[in-house]
Nucleic acid binder design. Sequence first.
DNA 1: AGGTCAACCTGAGCGC
DNA 2: TGCGCTCAGGTTGACC
Length: 288
Amino acid sequence: MPELPEVETVMTGLKPALEGHRFTHVETRRKDLRIPFPKDFAKRLNGRKVLHLWRRAKYIMADLDGGETLVIHLGMSGRMTVFAKSQSRKLGQFHYDPAPDEPEKHDHVIFDTDAPARVSFNDHRRFGLMTLIDTGKIESHKLFKDVGVEPLSKGFDVAFLKDALKDKKAPIKSALLDQRLIAGLGNIYVCEALWRAKISPRRRASRVKPDEIALLANAIKEVLLEAVEAGGSSLRDHKQVHGELGYFQHRFAVYSREKKLCQRADDGIIKRIVQSGRSSFFCPICQR
DNA sequence: AGGTCAACCTGAGCGC
DNA sequence: TGCGCTCAGGTTGACC
């Protein structure tokens, strides 16, 4: 499911229920996700206060009192949902529905907080993960030490992108998906950004010209910002924390639009190809 | 060293 | 209705 805009949307939605609040009860309902939970995971979270929620790459980060950070990755199908503990209660600007009496299928972790709120983590494919790491050691942690620049940060600009691509022999599509270069892009937004920049996903990264890289850097920022604004893209699994769909999928130019007419080229038909095992969608007429 | 690919897992959709 | 096949917003480790 989730790329940067979806993770950002979920993280922001979790803030009223988590930020500044304490975990009153945490329950893991199986022993692992993609990787095992750390030892005594639930027990170590009980009573801890969430100081700050933020996002790095496709990870949701919750800095806790006591110097540890709860790290959450949603994998392909992970979803987090916020419920009210009490039907009459309102939190922040949102209404919260009451939590169901029984957890639903694939609800793997349940967090109760003193907001009061209940947050469930549901992930039917279990490609997600959760762990706890020392807040001071995030940058050097295995999960983060090789993660690249945030595409919405000041560090991501035309000069950066030129440098990052200059020796890359891989197709530009694969290079943009590489989290070691740019953190947070995934299959949807790479396809969409390449369409906006009129660059074929098959082009060798090192052969993309400087003026095209300038267009591309801009397209990446633009598409991500628009998608965050839209609450992400809901294809199968992504929902916001109160069940609302994202709506950026209605603005796709190419993703999942195989055989449809390109909105830019007169007779361009969107084509699907497979690159390093993943679908790429593009218009062979206007993307060169 | 850099690039590609299968594996991890469940569910939805499609053709027969 | 059901079976078998394909595909899915990601990441990783084994392999060329």
